[in-house]
């Protein structure tokens, strides 16, 4: 019997949170779900939560809403719909998903949803792919990054983009070197990497090829481990004291709700200290990695 870390009913605090759907305002614009707490103070840094390929933006806003209320922080869950954004995970492939998110954030700033200069970013599965690549492109915008259960990653190595940061032929050829230019600043972001303990078998949605399997491993747990080690090594090579932490969520497979309810993902994304990334994160050491115990939380 699973023992939920986050009892959604019990954890809803006295402060209220309003869940809103904001339609897209234009042809290439994004719709989004918003969780707006009643006790939000001016200048509070928002959390941008990006869904996976099931497009569960509403689910992300709903499941993170109790933490939003507890911390008085707004949640912005953009919706990359399947028709217009089939490859949003890769950010710069096809239509530019990064520009769409920037435009949405500008609109929401005008609407008063957020006022800070930067925001925290998290993503689950395909959203985690988007989140880490967006943060690599705009490290100055992201104050804390949570990458949960990504199927695969852009590594800080010489593999061809999008697997690594090397130049490739074709339209997206220059993006690797562009991202590489800002890698140091990216590595200075506190990064929380999470993956379900049972998310260790590849499924039809896991990208497979000899190249990626050799570089990253065959399943999400292995890939998360290798990416976190690669980031740590890249930071170390640059003399950085990086805040990179890998958390293996117990009793969780590849399901966002399970990761929140049983793995405490919501508290890893939005810790009690307001997102300074210190409660759950510490300087990452490859072994032993953190396995959250349901009883601990």
């Amino acid at each position: 019997m699973l023992n939920p870390v986050s009892d959604l009913t019990a954890s809803v605090p006295s402060e209220t949170v309003t869940l809103l759907y904001r339609p897209a305002k234009g042809k290439d614009a994004l719709a989004c779900w918003l969780a707006i707490p009643s006790n939000m103070s001016a200048g509070t840094s928002p959390l941008v939560a990006v869904h996976g390929i099931r497009r569960g933006a509403k689910q992300q806003a709903e499941l993170l809403a109790p933490r939003a209320a507890a911390l008085g922080r707004p949640i912005i869950a953009p919706l990359f719909d399947k028709v217009n954004w089939p490859a949003y995970q890769q950010v710069v492939r096809g239509k530019r998903a990064d520009l769409a998110l920037l435009d949405l954030m500008t609109d929401l700033r005008l609407a008063g949803t957020w006022q800070s200069r930067s925001f925290e970013l998290c993503g689950y599965s395909g959203g985690a792919q988007f989140a880490h690549r967006f943060a690599m492109l705009y490290p100055q915008l992201v104050t804390r990054l949570t990458v949960a259960s990504a199927g695969w990653y852009t590594f800080p190595d010489n593999a061809a983009f999008p697997y690594g940061l090397n130049e490739t032929s074709g339209k997206a050829g220059h993006w690797g070197p562009r991202i590489a230019a800002g890698l140091q600043q990216f590595l200075e972001i506190p990064i929380q990497i999470c993956v379900g303990e049972e998310d260790c078998v590849s499924d039809p949605n896991t990208r497979q090829s000899a190249e990626i399997d050799q570089q990253q491993g065959v399943d999400r747990v292995t890939r998360a481990r290798r990416w976190s080690m690669a980031l740590q090594q890249a930071a170390s090579d640059r003399g950085l004291q990086a805040e990179i932490k890998l958390s293996i969520l117990p009793d969780c497979g590849h399901d966002f709700q399970d990761c929140v309810q049983y793995g405490g993902l919501d508290r890893l994304i939005l810790p009690d200290n307001g997102g300074a990334a210190s409660e759950h994160s510490q300087l990452y050491h490859p072994q032993p990695e953190t396995v959250l115990s349901a009883k601990q939380s």
Binding site: V92, R96, D98, L99, L102, L137, Y138, Q140, P177, R178, I179, A181, G182, Q184, Q185
Partner: peptide, 14 residues
């Protein structure tokens, strides 16, 4: 382009 301008700045700083 925000991403490319950002990258150009990062290249300069590096």
């Amino acid at each position: 382009d925000p991403a490319q301008a950002n990258a150009l700045l990062a290249q300069m700083l590096a």
